[in-house]
Design a protein around this nucleic acid. Structure first.
Length: 502
RNA sequence: GCGCCUCUAGCUCAACGGCAGAGCAACGGACUCUUAAUCCGCAGGUUUCGGGUUCGAAUCCCGAGGGGCGCACCA
């Protein structure tokens, strides 16, 4: 804030005028204010619940440790029993029992009246009860927050998705699996960063507000900058900026961040989602296959202690190396069709119709091929498998295949029927890139909202020289789903996008 | 965007054309080793909303809204 006048709210005693001020209506002292007055500004905690459990694991039944600790958390169960009482206190680390006795616990009656969900801080000796439960024998305690609202059924918690996702704070206290999944996600991102840093990659942040939404085929969100009086787009991919950093000399670079795509919401799609996007100079897409299979299997090892997963009841082996197969090989395997980008277009069209794909007149052979692949083959691939060599027609940013100029050196690792990433040897030729942009721009003008526009800034960067480079984007939400064995993307996002309430 | 399913007390669920209920939570009480403690008491509802059929609707029908799943789109 500016330096005009003192900040009255920081002055002790300078509270809002009360009844003494004739200008102000009389403000009664509410129950809330008296409750709040009993709540300290800080609480000196000496141990987490888990630390108590670990440190005094060998305490015998009925034994007293002689050591006093302070713990804090939310009361999840409360069992007053006349002149003694038990409660379960849960904090981030776990849970510990509170044991209170009327003759030793200060404000014993108050403690027995604590509601489920209330936060309390407790000081007392670590003991184990006669029945063998490690406990803190409460000498004194303090309320830290009252739960005015309940946390659902104390045994079943809450299961209504409306509450679970809109009021995640309730879900997280009520359902251990929700806490576990979000913690796993945090550990995954941390381990991913550590592996990439160790491999010499530099982490960067590129703009989220883009003047042109490029780097992927998707509909963007539009926003407006008032001072510039310019429309800006929330990024659909960081790809073009990251490659400009490679032009600038960042030979191994990555970004972990949020992308925004203005598309439908489904159990596998959130409008904002997180990806790892990575570029490596002097490398081609073959190098990336090794990098990805080692990264993903290594993360499984880091987080789960194994590369052998079970996903939705089916076994999934992530150990490297993963199978490598071209898209046309896989189409042939799954449909018996012997087709490729050079197959006469009429033949491709009828083959597509025979497999439930209705080709649009504007589609070339490449587009038809990809549609047939996605319709017939992709969901059947359990994998992991690297699906290689996409048609150039559908890949405007990828470099043409060294053995076939109608293909590009692109692959998608498919795991459990879903693409986990998208990777290619990057197109480095500014002239070819301009030509591909022009094709996209024509499609955009013809009504394809997902087609790219010509990005002159990016073309200029390529003219300064992009060395041979390979890069990929990998969905972190999807990877977390895989590792936590859930089928709905909302489970791995703390606050998934929902229709606004009312 | 389209299709199917769903919505009952704060939470989890019964009642499925005939008086809207239970457990937990909350509230009041009993209880000196509980473990989802137990026991007694009390309170809690325009059955998501709006129409319709019927002597009678939480229940059947139509519409709206929220949610779930599938399809489409995509990662």
């Amino acid at each position: 804030m500016s330096g005009t006048g003192q900040d009255a709210t920081h002055e002790p005693g300078a509270r809002a005028p009360r009844a003494s001020d004739p200008e102000m209506p009389e403000t009664p002292v509410t129950e809330t204010e008296t409750e709040t007055a009993a709540i300290p500004y800080r609480f000196e905690r000496t141990h987490s619940a888990a630390e108590v459990v670990e440190h005094w694991a060998s305490l015998a039944d009925g034994e007293e440790s002689g050591v006093e600790v302070s713990v804090a958390g939310r009361v999840m169960l409360n069992r007053p029993q006349g002149r003694l009482a038990f409660a379960e206190l849960r904090d981030w680390s776990g849970a510990i029992q509170l044991f209170a006795l009327a003759k030793v616990t200060k404000d014993f009656d108050g403690l027995t009246r604590v509601n489920l969900g209330d936060w309390v801080g407790v000081r007392g000796e670590v003991v184990r009860t006669k029945r063998g439960e490690l406990s803190v024998k409460v000498a004194e305690w303090s309320p830290l927050a009252r739960a005015r609202r309940g946390f659902g059924d104390k045994w079943r918690g809450v299961s209504d998705p409306e509450i679970r996702y809109r009021q995640r704070e309730v879900d997280l206290w009520a359902n251990e699996s929700s806490r576990h999944i979000l913690t796993l996600r945090s550990r995954l991102v941390k381990a991913m960063r550590e592996r990439l840093w160790a491999a010499g990659f530099v982490e960067v942040e590129t703009p989220i507000l883009h003047p042109i939404a490029g780097g992927a085929a998707a509909k963007p969100f539009v926003t407006h900058h008032n001072a510039l009086d310019a429309d800006l787009y929330l990024r659909i991919a960081p790809e073009l900026y990251l490659k400009r950093l490679v032009v600038g000399g960042f030979e191994k670079v990555f970004e972990i961040g949020r992308l925004f795509r203005n598309e439908g919401i489904s159990p596998r799609h959130n409008p904002e989602f997180t990806t790892l996007e990575l570029y490596q100079a002097y490398a081609d897409y073959g190098d990336l296959m090794v990098l990805i299979e080692e990264l993903v299997s290594g993360l499984a090892q880091d987080l789960l202690g194994t590369t052998t997963l079970s996903y939705q009841g089916r076994p999934l082996e992530l150990a490297a190396p993963w199978r490598r197969a071209t898209m046309v090989e896989l189409i042939t395997e799954h449909t018996g069709l012997k087709v490729d980008v050079h197959t006469p277009i009429d033949e491709l069209r009828s083959a597509a119709r025979a497999h439930g794909v209705t080709p649009d007149d504007s589609w070339g052979p490449g587009k038809i091929l990809v549609e047939v692949y996605e319709k017939t083959t992709e969901a059947e691939l359990w994998g992991p498998v690297f699906v290689m060599d996409y048609p150039a027609e559908v890949s405007p940013l990828a470099r043409r295949h060294r053995d076939d100029l109608d293909l590009v050196e692109r692959f998608e690792p498919v795991v459990a029927g879903r693409e986990l990433a998208n990777a290619f040897s990057e197109l480095t030729d500014p002239d070819d890139q301009r030509a591909r942009f022009e094709e996209q721009a024509a499609a955009h003008r013809a009504g394809d909202e997902e087609a790219n526009e010509v990005d002159e800034d990016y073309l200029r960067a390529l003219e300064y020289g992009l060395p041979p480079t390979a890069g990929f984007g990998l969905g972190i939400d999807r990877l977390t789903m895989l590792f936590s064995d859930v089928s709905n993307i909302r489970e791995v996002i703390a606050f998934p996008t929902l229709r606004p309430e009312h």
